[in-house]
Amino acid sequence: MKKHVVLYKSLSPALLAQLEAATEVTYIEDPKSPEGQARLLQALPSAHGLLGASLRVGDELLALAPQLEVVASVSVGVDKYDLAAFKRRGVTLTHTPNVLTDTTADTGFALLMATARRVVELAAKVRAGQWKESVGPSEFGTDVHHKTLGIVGMGRIGQALAQRGHFGFDMPVLYHTHSAKPEVDARFGARHCSLDELLRESDFVCLTVPLTAATEGLIGARELGLMKPGAILVNIARGPVLDEAALIDALRGGRLRGAGLDVFSQEPVAPDSPLLTMANVVPTPHIGSATHETREAMAACAVENLLAGLRGEVPPDRVVL
């Protein structure tokens, strides 16, 4: 008898066919809607596997799925999962850490460039018919090349950002993480330093750390106050890593030149957030991995992880518990 999988993320026809060939699939289009929640509650008792994203999974949900073996998340971040609960119940959690690295780093560098050169702000003026003469100093941006790039977190995405900055724009690279990485130092001419030193010396500060108890609120008013006047902040980590109220104050006060934000403390971002009315903020709707190629690769990775786990194998991308 095939094992039962609850799918709460749409898959391409090819991937869905692969999953259906090996398992019995219950598809729930929106598990957060009243109808979706009812269907999820009905399906969980017989579920051996879950596959999807953006659903919080902890003790309460796991208790409703006594046969559950594997949860395959279509994401790299695992902040929506109670890892201790998974460990207690012997349920395997997998994620997709490798296939979105370059795409997310591209997004981070796009935000850095767009903010530095005021691309979105000035494009809006052109569209509005307000381009009447050559731009003057009040509309100038700032150079990116040869400026100092500070990366908070030096995992896969941080290293991909360092590669773009060092090789593409001749940027000195500083980074802050638990410990120095000699291979990163050698490859990118990078220097490991304290967070305070990074903030004081960097022209561009990019946040790439995962959301954990240690990183929540990592960048607040004190940290923003250490940044160079005129520096630019880019967040492609998670919204709660950054104190948004403190960022708004720093931008309003003119201390920071601007911010490129792909993540927010509340998503979707509140429509009355002051960040949305600031010309020097480039906000995007959490698009770090949002390309056709990458999202398909993430889904394929999740399917592979799920099926391997249901076969009793160690999935390629099991989260270490």
Rank of each mutant, 00 (worst) to 15 (best):
S179W: 01
V5M: 05
M113T: 09
V314L: 13
A114T: 11
V281D: 04
A17D: 03
Q37F: 04
L247H: 07
V120C: 15
K132R: 15
L51R: 02
L310K: 12
T23W: 02
L15R: 04
A85E: 10
E121R: 09
T96I: 05
S10Q: 14
C301K: 00
V70W: 05
E296V: 03
G141Q: 10
E29I: 04
L233H: 10
L83D: 00
G254P: 13
R39P: 02
R187S: 05
E296D: 15
L256W: 06
F264Y: 08
G253Q: 14
V205I: 11
S54I: 00
A214K: 13
G258H: 08
I236Y: 14
R191A: 12
D59I: 00
T96L: 06
G189I: 09
H292D: 10
L16Y: 01
R88S: 13
A124S: 14
V303K: 05
V57A: 04
V173N: 14
D106G: 01
L83F: 04
P271I: 03
E216Q: 12
R117D: 10
C301Q: 07
E304D: 15
V314Q: 10
A105H: 08
P13K: 00
L50P: 05
D59H: 10
V173K: 09
R39F: 01
K80D: 12
T142D: 13
Q67V: 02
L226Y: 03
A65I: 08
I151K: 04
L44W: 04
K3A: 14
P316E: 10
A47Q: 08
E244C: 06
Q42E: 15
D82Q: 12
L112V: 02
S273H: 07
P182M: 01
R164Q: 12
G49W: 08
V205E: 00
V319Y: 14
A237N: 04
A63Q: 13
V241I: 13
K2P: 15
F109L: 15
Q67I: 01
P271W: 01
Q42L: 13
R117P: 14
S194G: 14
D170F: 03
L64G: 00
D262G: 12
P268W: 12
A47I: 11
T215G: 09
S179P: 00
H292A: 13
L306S: 02
